[in-house]
Amino acid sequence: MPEDVQVLREGIKLALRLVERIKAQGYPITDLYLPFSDTDEDIDAYIRKQGRTTFLYACTCRMAPLEEDGVVDDELMVWGVDGLRVADTSVFPGTIAGYTMGPLV
C-alpha cells in the first residue's frame, strides 16, 4: 500500500542518516546492502526488492465457541472434525502485544 511504502521510505532515510553519523564517528560499518542512493525512487526500488513480511501469524483458527466463529474448543479440537487438533499460535483467540512463542509454549 502506498502509505506503507511511505513509512518504510522514511524509516530507511533515517537509517541511512544514522549509518553516516556512526561512520563519521569512526566506527567501521561495512557489508551493508543499501539502496543505490537516497532518492525516493531508489529507496522505493530497494523496498520492492528487499521487503519481506515478518508477521507472527496468529488467530486464524481461534479458540472460541462455535457460535462465536471459533474453530477449536478449549482442548484444541477442531469443531465438527473428529480427532483433529490444532496446536499452534493460530488458536489464540486474539492478538497479543508481544512475541507469540512464550504463550505458545
Score class of each variant (00 low, 15 high):
Met1Asp: 12
Pro2Phe: 02
Glu3Asn: 08
Glu3Ser: 14
Glu3Asp: 09
Asp4Met: 10
Asp4Cys: 02
Asp4Tyr: 11
Val5Ile: 06
Val5Phe: 12
Gln6Leu: 10
Leu8Gln: 12
Leu8Lys: 09
Leu8Phe: 13
Leu8Gly: 02
Leu8Trp: 11
Glu10Met: 13
Glu10Arg: 12
Gly11Arg: 14
Lys13Cys: 08
Ala15Ser: 14
Leu16Gly: 06
Arg17Thr: 11
Glu20Thr: 04
Glu20Lys: 13
Arg21Trp: 01
Ile22Gln: 09
Lys23Pro: 01
Ala24Gln: 15
Gln25Met: 06
Gly26Trp: 12
Gly26Leu: 09
Gly26Gln: 07
Tyr27Pro: 00
Tyr27Ser: 00
Pro28Ala: 11
Pro28Ser: 11
Pro28Met: 08
Ile29Arg: 03
Ile29His: 11
Ile29Leu: 15
Thr30Trp: 02
Asp31His: 10
Asp31Ala: 11
Tyr33Arg: 05
Leu34His: 04
Leu34Arg: 09
Pro35Val: 06
Pro35Thr: 11
Phe36Met: 05
Asp38Lys: 14
Thr39Val: 07
Asp42Lys: 10
Asp42Glu: 14
Asp44Lys: 05
Asp44Cys: 05
Asp44Met: 03
Asp44Phe: 05
Ala45Gln: 12
Tyr46Ser: 02
Tyr46Ala: 07
Tyr46Gly: 06
Ile47Asp: 03
Ile47Ser: 01
Ile47Tyr: 07
Arg48Val: 03
Lys49Phe: 12
Lys49Leu: 07
Lys49Cys: 05
Lys49Ser: 01
Gln50Asp: 04
Gly51Thr: 05
Arg52Trp: 02
Arg52Lys: 14
Arg52His: 12
Thr53Cys: 04
Thr53Phe: 11
Thr54Met: 14
Leu56Phe: 08
Tyr57Ser: 14
Ala58Arg: 03
Cys59Lys: 02
Thr60Gly: 06
Cys61Gln: 06
Cys61Arg: 06
Glu67Gly: 02
Glu67Ile: 04
Glu68Val: 00
Asp69Lys: 07
Asp69Met: 03
Val71Gln: 01
Val71Asp: 10
Val71Leu: 08
Asp74His: 11
Asp74Leu: 04
Leu76Gln: 02
Val78Asn: 06
Val78Cys: 00
Gly80Ile: 01
Gly80Pro: 01
Val81Pro: 00
Val81Thr: 10
Asp82Gln: 11
Gly83Glu: 09
Gly83Val: 12
Gly83Ala: 10
Gly83Trp: 13
Gly83Met: 10
Leu84Trp: 00
Arg85Thr: 02
Arg85Glu: 07
Arg85Lys: 15
Val86Met: 04
Val86Asp: 12
Ala87Leu: 04
Ala87Trp: 13
Ala87Glu: 05
Ala87Asp: 03
Asp88His: 08
Asp88Phe: 09
Asp88Ser: 08
Asp88Val: 03
Ser90His: 06
Ser90Ile: 00
Ser90Glu: 01
Val91Gln: 08
Pro93Val: 04
Pro93Ser: 12
Ile96Asp: 03
Ala97Ile: 03
Ala97Met: 04
Ala97Glu: 04
Tyr99Pro: 02
Tyr99His: 15
Thr100Cys: 14
Thr100Glu: 04
Thr100Asp: 05
Gly102Glu: 13
Gly102Arg: 09
Pro103Glu: 05
Pro103Tyr: 05
Pro103Phe: 06
Leu104Ser: 12
